[in-house]
Design a protein around this nucleic acid. Structure first.
Length: 428
DNA sequence: TCTGGGGTCCTAGGACCC
DNA sequence: TCTGGGGTCCTAGGACCC
């Protein structure tokens, strides 16, 4: 088989994107409840501060969109039913889709929980399909057979084109049923792009749209007549060049198999703002131990910790610190998080609506660079005892659930219920 | 309308080193 | 005593995506 010729053979990229993913998973999980409800919203509750994670196509007909406050969504569509969906079920569904895609090419890159890029370049003979479209249809069928989920597939010579094409493949209305396949043939990228608004390009959000409009640019067609120098003058070397290529459908970024995870974090918006240091401390402990557990479960250590605080007025601040070595035990992570929270509270004391903890600068536990002797006496931040304790706690948590082990700080207040303000959003 | 939770990537300034 | 420039790391903030 002749090797593919990058200079002459166009790439064959697909974006496989699940339709109404969270709603579909909720329906599969509860066929007799959510499964029978056409007007379905996954997301926060009406009383709470939640937003819509995903809405059924029937709900979208009322103007309901994801990221919209749930209260607003219910005003638009009062008969909608709001349900939660478990994070585990969504992860399992995502893995199940991934497993099907792996049968078609080794080059699968997850872009989010419900989106995957595939590079099918050079697989023509392998699949023996007459066209890329035929392969895409087989993929849709295989995913549905195996998972019960519907996907829409966009395709073309780059990730950018595949992504934008996928939108064209989506079902517009519930009546149209399942999504489909939309491919942009090689050579027709410019024509495909020309007809679209700039806002449709991934990476052009509200802020960039504002800047573009200041120069009278709303449509791809408005940008096409401008030369690179002009665009660089307006949007800087990076932004200008990027935009120049984008509007022509040019994107050379590769599909990368299994990009390494860069960070692990958890955050929570409280049902009511918290201003008491003990309350915040309790929440910080809960979030940090949970991050630590995920870190160990996924075989990571982290060098950088970040604590995020959103004040009642929605001002969001963060503090971070990089440790001399990568760590993964509760003791060090908790001590670090506490320092960071104290720093944020010192600079401004306002009721908090959200607290978040993120670990980044990840390294594989036991991998190269892990546990370098840092101090002259050969000591390190975490003792063997810390590590043994952490793994014992993980064992207990796994067997008895998260209530099996509680931190001392939670037990210090016997009068309080187990310190967990009811999360008002769905657990995804 | 009153704004979730999971992420990635980029920028800019300052520290520090050569 | 004053002065350069490049590279890397760290921190804070922000845009963006699903």
């Amino acid at each position: 088989m002749p090797a593919p010729h990058p200079a002459t053979d166009p790439r064959r990229i697909l974006l496989v994107d699940a339709d109404a993913f969270y709603v579909s998973v909720a329906r599969l999980e509860d066929p007799d409840g959510a499964g029978r409800e056409p007007l379905l919203i996954v997301g926060g509750t009406a009383e709470g501060r939640g937003v819509v994670t995903s809405a059924s196509y029937e709900c979208r007909a009322f103007g309901v969109r994801s990221a919209m406050p749930t209260a607003q969504a219910l005003r638009l569509c009062p008969r909608a039913v709001v349900v939660p969906v478990s994070r585990e079920a969504c992860s399992a569904a995502s893995r199940a889709i991934r497993a099907v895609l792996d049968d078609f090419t080794p080059d699968v890159e997850p872009a989010s929980i419900d989106e995957f890029y595939l590079d099918l370049s050079g697989t023509e003979r392998l699949h023996a399909d007459p066209t890329l479209e035929a392969t895409a249809r087989r993929i849709r069928h295989a995913v549905h057979e195996s998972t019960g989920l519907d996907v829409s597939i966009g395709g073309g010579t780059s990730r950018l084109i595949a992504k934008m094409a996928a939108r064209e493949a989506k079902p517009r209305r519930a009546a149209e049923g399942r999504g489909g396949v939309y491919l942009v043939p090689p050579g027709e990228e410019l024509e495909f792009m020309r007809a679209r608004p700039l806002a449709a390009i991934p990476g052009i959000g509200p802020r960039f749209q504002d800047r573009l409009q200041r120069y009278g640019l709303r449509q791809v067609a408005d940008v096409l007549p401008r030369d690179v120098a002009t665009l660089i003058g307006w949007f800087g070397p990076r932004g200008g060049r990027w935009l120049f290529n984008c509007v022509r459908g040019i994107d050379h970024s590769p599909v990368v198999r299994d990009g390494r995870r860069k960070s692990v974090g958890h955050e929570e918006t409280f049902a009511r703002d918290l201003n008491d240091d003990d309350d915040l401390h309790t929440e910080l402990t809960r979030l940090t131990t949970s991050v630590a557990r995920d870190l160990r479960r996924t075989g990571h250590r982290a060098r950088t910790m970040t604590v995020k605080l959103r004040d009642a007025d929605f001002t969001t601040r963060q503090a971070s610190v990089t440790l001399p070595e990568a760590v993964s035990t509760d003791r060090i992570l908790l001590a670090t998080a506490r320092d960071l929270l104290a720093r944020l509270r010192r600079s401004r004391r306002a009721p908090a609506r959200l607290l978040g903890v993120t670990a980044s600068g990840l390294t594989a536990a036991g991998g190269a660079g892990d546990q370098l002797p840092l101090f002259e006496d050969g000591g390190s931040l975490e003792s063997d005892r810390d590590l043994a304790l952490a793994s014992a706690v993980d064992g207990i948590t796994q067997r008895f659930g998260r209530t099996g082990v509680r931190r001392g700080v939670e037990m210090r207040h016997p009068g309080c219920p187990p310190s967990r303000p009811t999360p008002n959003t769905d657990p995804t």
